[in-house]
Design a binder for these strands. Structure first.
Lengths: 195, 195
DNA sequence: CTAGTAACCTGAGGCCGTCTCAGGAAACGC
DNA sequence: GCGTTTCCTGAGACGGCCTCAGGTTACTAG
């Protein structure tokens, strides 16, 4: 957080544009935390001290806004996925899969409604969230196949099944805020994967 | 289904009102099936050949419309719950619980978005869906406690946990239409309940 | 310091949705 | 038929999404 703040935005931006972008992201994060991913974009713009059009100028859609907001968290998940798959650092297949599922479920629970958005982003190739969703899905697929090949999970489970279960868990956790319960439920779900 | 159609509406209604009510329910069912429970009420009214105000006259809120639409299905679930709890007809505790969970999950998957509505109806005492949700929840609670007392499920699981799991399953099944997958996922979930 | 330019911002306005309510229409009972 | 009660209508207030023509501002080259 210094002059390298423009990491993944090599093109110089006008100072006011940069400021507005940051305020918008901050307000969007606050609004999404409080009201979920369906929070009013108009209100977000207003609270950022900016006109609606400015918001749309920076983020053409809700998905684009989310994508920008989640960039770091997604990056961290990609890294985790790589580590869980790399031959040198990977834990046993079942543990790798469950650690992945817990991480993704926790991520999808970050905002109420995020699970739906990620689900939708996977289906819609035009969504700004599509790339991220696809990478998450690919990592999950690889981990699932490895676990399946090792006989660590029921043979009939497909990667899509795993994705569905993670989404459901994220949906649930995203509207409860009870971490103890979340843990119990994830345990039920993950134990059920075993053959 | 004949002249006894006004079962739970003892008060005579004007013929046109009765007709409109039925057309509205039919169109709402169609719309909810196609587009989920967030379908536009204006469009439903229009397709029923009626002004918006008429719809709101019959059903003050989306929840009221859903409540009317689901009345029979809820009644059937209450009956099932009673049977699963009655000492004469009840199967073993674990089977009773899982049959209940499967039935409620299937019900909540009837329309995309219904799971959220039922969840919300439980929380909001003013919702027209509240009574039905509360009864469903009570039956689930009793079945859970019985299963827990019999040592058929993990000791740490609460009735709220079960409700949450059923909701998540309903959410999932409500946006997939793959019954084979639905079965696999429910199996995972229900097997995970065991100690 | 200044002018020119490209980048950016604004907000009215079109569209659709929810929900209400005053006034009009229609069914019913006699 | 006629009065009464019940019901229906649809304009309109309000908020959300999204766009785009026109105004504004930061930067830059001189």
């Amino acid at each position: 957080m210094s002059e390298t703040a423009r990491d993944h935005a090599p093109r110089r931006r006008r100072a006011d544009a940069q400021r507005n972008r940051e305020r918008l992201l901050a307000e969007a994060d606050a609004a999404f935390r409080e009201q979920g991913t369906e929070a009013s974009l108009e209100r977000i713009a207003r609270r950022a001290g900016v006109a609606v059009g400015t918001l749309y100028g920076h983020f053409p859609s809700r998905a684009a806004l989310l994508d920008a907001l989640l960039r770091d968290r997604h990056e961290a998940l990609f890294t985790l996925g790589d580590a869980l798959l790399a031959t040198t650092t990977a834990p046993p297949p079942f543990e790798a899969l469950t650690r992945w599922m817990r991480a993704v479920a926790a991520h999808g629970a970050g905002y109420t409604g995020l699970a739906e958005q990620l689900w939708g982003g996977l289906d819609d190739p035009d969504s700004e969230l599509h790339a991220a969703c696809a990478r998450l899905s690919a990592a999950g697929r690889a981990l699932t196949e490895r676990a399946r090949a090792a006989g660590a999970i029921r043979a009939e489970l497909t990667p899509d099944d795993i994705f569905a279960l993670v989404s459901a868990a994220a949906w649930l956790l995203g509207r409860h805020r009870d971490t103890a319960q979340a843990d119990r439920l994830l345990t039920v779900l993950l134990d059920g994967l075993r053959p």
